Simulated assay, not measured.
Amino acid sequence: MNIYGKQVYGAEDEETRCSHYHQETDRIALKCFCCREYYPCYKCHEEITGKPFKPWPAEYREEKAVLCGACGTELTISGYLTSSSRCPSCRSAFNPGCALHYHLYFEPKK
């Protein structure tokens, strides 16, 4: 699905929700480090590509790799991780439970 001019593979609505995560606040897509494509979640990436989602190395924290499904703003990884579960641009809430999966998307700083 094309969302704000970005292809988001596996998205089922215009705010980037998917079959795995579809609560009101599930409105981000994440760019995979290996393929540089957006997916709503690691499960979508694995189903579509047949490969695990490769997390971003810690030295890439200033790379834009998170897409807000509410307004289309691309956030840097560090911007997303320090956002307090809200888009800094439109203030839409993100699911705070996503923090449980950060290790799947972003390698920890050493």
Rank of each mutant, 00 (worst) to 15 (best):
F33M: 12
A29S: 09
G72K: 13
Y80E: 00
L100R: 09
A93L: 13
G69F: 05
Y4E: 07
C68T: 04
Y39Q: 03
A70L: 07
Y102V: 02
K109N: 03
A58E: 02
A29T: 10
E107Q: 09
L104V: 09
L104P: 00
K6R: 15
C41W: 08
E63P: 08
C34S: 15
L67T: 03
Q23M: 12
S89K: 13
A65Y: 04
F94V: 01
H22G: 08
C87F: 08
M1C: 01
L75H: 09
I77H: 02
P108T: 04
P40E: 08
R17L: 04
L100G: 02
Y38I: 03
K109F: 06
Y9D: 07
E12P: 00
G5P: 09
C98W: 04
E59H: 03
A11F: 02
G50R: 14
S83Q: 06
I28C: 05
W56L: 00
Y42F: 12
Q23G: 11
N95M: 06
G5W: 14
E59Y: 01
A70G: 12
T82C: 09
F94A: 01
C35E: 13
R17C: 04
H103L: 05
K110T: 02
L30D: 00
S89Q: 14
A11P: 01
R86Y: 12
A29D: 07
D13I: 09
Y80R: 00
E12G: 04
F94Q: 00
Y4F: 15
I77A: 01
C90Y: 11
A99I: 13
F33R: 10
Y39L: 05
R17Q: 13
S89C: 15
D13C: 12
T82H: 13
G10V: 02
C34Q: 15
Y80C: 01
Q23N: 11
T49L: 03
R86W: 06
R27V: 11
R27G: 03
E47Y: 09
N2P: 12
T76I: 02
C44Q: 04
K31W: 06
I77M: 03
A11D: 03
C68V: 10
T25N: 11
A65E: 08
A29V: 10
F33A: 12
V8I: 14
H22K: 05
L75F: 08
E63I: 09
G10M: 09
Y21T: 08
A93N: 11
K51Q: 15
A29I: 12
E14V: 07
K110R: 10
P52N: 14
C98P: 06
Y42M: 00
F94C: 02
Y60Q: 05
D13M: 07
E107K: 06
E14P: 07
K64Y: 15
I77D: 02
S78D: 13
R61S: 03
C32N: 11
G5T: 14
T25Q: 08
T73Y: 12
P88I: 05
N2M: 13
F33L: 10
P96Q: 08
G5F: 14
G5Y: 14
P88A: 09
Y9C: 05
C44I: 01
Y38K: 06
E107F: 07
Y9K: 08
V66T: 10
C41K: 01
